[in-house]
Design a protein around this nucleic acid. Structure first.
Lengths: 330, 330
DNA sequence: TTGTAAGCGTTATCAT
DNA sequence: ATGATAACGCTTACAA
């Protein structure tokens, strides 16, 4: 469709080499010839074929990013950061979305590899030995964000367990005596990677155990809204707070309470996780934990680029600091 | 890095042709040879280089999508739809984000073209003759969503003008006598494409003109929150509603009112545009106009694929129907 | 100043 | 059943 170097060469009656020299202004080309070549290139709107170029020198200068269903908002806000950071270093960013399918994620990663991405950023939904082997077998620099898959792959995350413990401590410091941990991903199929949520669960359990006299409960699965009522039966005198393993779950709880004519935090405390952008628009302001999505993304890109550049890179586990945001729902 | 057909051939002491036949199980290959080849391919994890393949037969089976700053939420929700639709037809989707830079948008489009995308989907931020010429000069199938750039490029949109008129009529039907149209993009640099918002403005003006006795005002620019107070001076007895050219602006107004201790819709009516996903979490439920983002996205992909397949495709203007959502803020 | 030739990895055609 | 050869578009030695 577009004109090629060869065609320009033919039209101008010179060799491709000369055309190249003219286009890239390197080496020496006769003034007349150069003008003629540039004129033709412009007229036919020459545009280099980057596939061919990449094929030649083995570099695409492109990174692949695999995103979960963007509607989930979690992680979406990292995309800008990733893009900006990569662009600074001269890389092109290819984002693909896997629409919450385990198999889809694998296929997309494979596709990115076949398209010769120089590195891949991923917040994996898959897990397990087989998936780990798959990733390793690609022999491509990879960095995981959040979910952990392998010690041989650099993972950037926050210390989720510690974060959950801090959350529990904050809740207790406000005088709550009953804590319900809401973690829908626990109901996900076993093959699915819910490392982040498992860590939060672990932190929750440990923190609660340390405090005798506190009652607690765990709700997993996507029907959590329906289980909330049952959870409160028999604890009339206890001050209850919900700790949700993700802000959007907390927002759903908030909506449910509103629908029932109850209010937060008067009738129950509420706390989320992640500090997603939409919270700006929500009232009351949700108490939550910032898991520094932007920071994780930036670090992940930096780390990925290092891995691409350095022959002797060795995989790391990087923990960014989280921050408890004490706002209005506790 | 990864092993190539040539290397397999060498290792097995056969020609590439034979290797290919074995890998693709076409043509006939000796049983022994085939086994040997497959074994080596598996051992070294052979993975076809799609750049090379594409270079050969001139097809990448990939679409490019250019997204504005994803934090804006508008349009983000289309990404899933686009991806799903493209995948159904066997296409790979490459998303890139331009981070609200006019120049960045151009560079990315160019980059996608150089990477031989077979078609490009875009909700353009640029406009004008020069940009139009740029797009046309690429000689690649392109479909615009929302913003219009050229009659020679298929554009999928809703009738924004009509939608704005419908919005005004709804507001008036509720007894409001003063309407403030809030449209921050009007303050954007002149080179920026704000076609959608201009259409909404036009619809607003026309609808208001038809109703004598109604007072109205237009606030443009990003400082709209600061101008709201001034706008209400001298209209104490008039029932006022804000019509915002985008849901997020409306959410900001809502927040402002809340901060002042006022409430919506008691102290003022409020209406948005687009029906973005986050509205699900917001109370009171924002009255708005659904501009069918998903529908636009689906249609755009379908149209783009048609354009890729059919040699005789001719550009269209496609209008999807909008829907006024009469909810709780009027 | 200009050109020739080989190569990147894949595929298709035509031979043996 | 297997191979040789050319081609896709671009780059880079190495000549002339």
């Amino acid at each position: 469709m577009a004109i090629t170097v060869n065609q320009i060469a033919e039209k101008c009656g010179v060799s491709r080499t000369t055309v190249l020299r003219a286009l890239n202004s390197q080496g020496s080309v006769g003034k007349q010839t150069k003008e003629r070549i540039l004129a033709v290139a412009k007229e036919y709107n020459y545009r280099p074929n980057l596939l061919a170029r990449s094929l030649h020198h083995g570099r695409t200068m492109s990174l692949g990013v695999v995103t979960i269903n963007v509607e989930n908002m979690y992680f979406v806000q990292s995309l800008n950061v990733i893009n900006r950071e990569a662009e600074k270093r001269g890389y092109f960013t290819n984002i693909v979305v896997c629409d919450e399918s385990l198999e889809g994620e694998r296929r997309l990663i494979q596709g990115l590899a076949e398209r010769q991405m120089e590195g891949i950023l991923i917040s994996p939904m898959n897990k397990g030995k087989e998936f780990e082997d798959f990733l390793l077998s690609l022999h491509i620099p990879i960095v995981c964000m959040g979910n952990h898959v392998s010690d041989l792959i650099t993972t950037v995350q926050v210390n989720e367990k510690k974060a959950a413990m801090d959350a529990v401590h904050l809740i207790l410091s406000k005088g709550y005596q009953n804590i319900v941990f809401i973690c829908p991903p626990l109901g996900a199929p076993k093959q699915q990677n819910i490392y982040v949520h498992e860590q939060r669960l672990a932190g929750f359990k440990e923190a609660v155990l340390e405090c005798p006299g506190i009652t607690s409960q765990i709700i997993g699965g996507m029907d959590y809204l329906k289980e909330i009522d049952a959870a409160l039966v028999g604890k009339p005198e206890k001050k209850t707070a919900f700790l949700c393993s993700g802000d959007s779950y907390a927002l759903n709880v908030m909506r449910l309470y509103r629908q029932k004519g109850l209010s937060i935090p008067e009738n129950a405390g509420l706390m989320g996780f992640d500090n997603i952008n939409v919270l700006d628009y929500i009232t009351p302001k949700l108490t939550t934990v910032s898991t520094n999505l932007e920071g994780v993304a930036t670090t992940a890109v930096t780390e990925l680029l290092q891995q691409i550049d350095a022959a002797d890179y060795s995989p790391k586990s990087i923990y960014l600091n989280h921050k408890v945001l004490d706002r209005d729902t506790l």
